Simulated scan of single mutants.
Amino acid sequence: MTDKYKDTLSDEAYWVTRQAGTERPFTGALLNETRDGYYLCKCCGAKLFPAETKFDAGCGWPSFYDQSDDSNVGFREDHTHGMARTEIFCKQCDAHLGHVFPDGPEPTGQRYCVNSLSMNFTSNEGDKVEG
């Protein structure tokens, strides 16, 4: 059986999204993206985060204080690397996105810390950027 993700993603994007890897901080293509639009799952295209919820957390990864109204981001416990964290994943295709922490800005107080390699960005003008 062919792994459709292995055939369509770069090795790095596959490692992040399908094997719960983490890209190095401050290296992601979407870290400094500031235009209006949407961040979409790299694997299936599901809407994940509207650009207006993005903020600079200074952590080295794109950060958002809320997910899209489509509620495509799921949560599960992650105890890897000797830490207790909450992993975030795409509810549509189970792609690993990153983690969420309770130290974000109002109104939610959440910081969705997301790998650029797990997303693509589409601006309101139709421009597309791959993470």
Rank of each mutant, 00 (worst) to 15 (best):
M1S: 15
M1G: 15
D3P: 10
K4W: 01
K4S: 09
Y5R: 06
K6G: 03
K6C: 01
T8Q: 13
L9Q: 14
D11M: 09
D11W: 06
A13D: 11
A13V: 02
W15R: 15
T17E: 10
G21M: 03
E23I: 05
R24I: 04
R24Q: 15
P25L: 04
F26C: 10
T27P: 02
G28E: 02
G28L: 02
L30N: 00
L30D: 03
L30A: 01
L31F: 13
L31H: 11
N32V: 05
N32Q: 13
E33Q: 15
E33N: 10
E33G: 03
T34G: 02
Y38K: 14
Y38T: 13
L40N: 06
C41V: 10
K42C: 13
K42M: 14
K42Y: 14
C44G: 08
C44M: 14
G45P: 11
A46S: 15
K47Q: 14
F49E: 00
F49D: 00
P50R: 11
P50D: 10
P50V: 06
A51Y: 10
A51D: 11
E52Q: 14
K54E: 12
A57L: 08
A57G: 15
A57W: 02
A57S: 15
G58T: 07
G58C: 11
C59H: 05
C59E: 02
C59I: 08
C59T: 13
G60S: 05
G60I: 05
W61C: 00
P62I: 05
P62E: 05
P62R: 09
S63V: 04
F64Y: 13
Y65C: 12
D66M: 05
D66S: 14
D66I: 07
D66L: 01
Q67F: 01
Q67C: 06
Q67N: 04
D69V: 06
D69S: 10
D70V: 03
D70R: 13
S71V: 11
S71I: 04
S71A: 13
N72V: 02
V73L: 00
G74A: 10
F75A: 09
F75K: 12
R76Y: 09
R76K: 15
E77K: 15
H79E: 13
T80P: 01
T80Y: 02
H81G: 00
G82Q: 12
G82V: 07
G82C: 09
R85W: 07
T86G: 06
T86D: 06
E87W: 08
I88Q: 01
I88C: 04
F89Q: 08
C90D: 06
C90K: 10
C90T: 06
C90P: 09
A95R: 07
A95D: 12
H96K: 09
H96S: 04
L97I: 05
G98D: 07
H99V: 04
H99P: 07
H99T: 11
F101P: 11
F101N: 10
D103F: 06
G104W: 03
P105R: 12
E106Y: 01
P107E: 06
P107L: 09
P107I: 05
R111I: 01
R111N: 08
Y112P: 07
C113W: 03
C113R: 08
V114K: 02
S116N: 03
S116Y: 00
S118V: 04
S118E: 00
M119R: 03
M119S: 04
T122E: 12
S123Y: 02
S123M: 07
S123D: 03
N124R: 08
E125L: 04
D127R: 12
K128R: 14
G131Y: 03
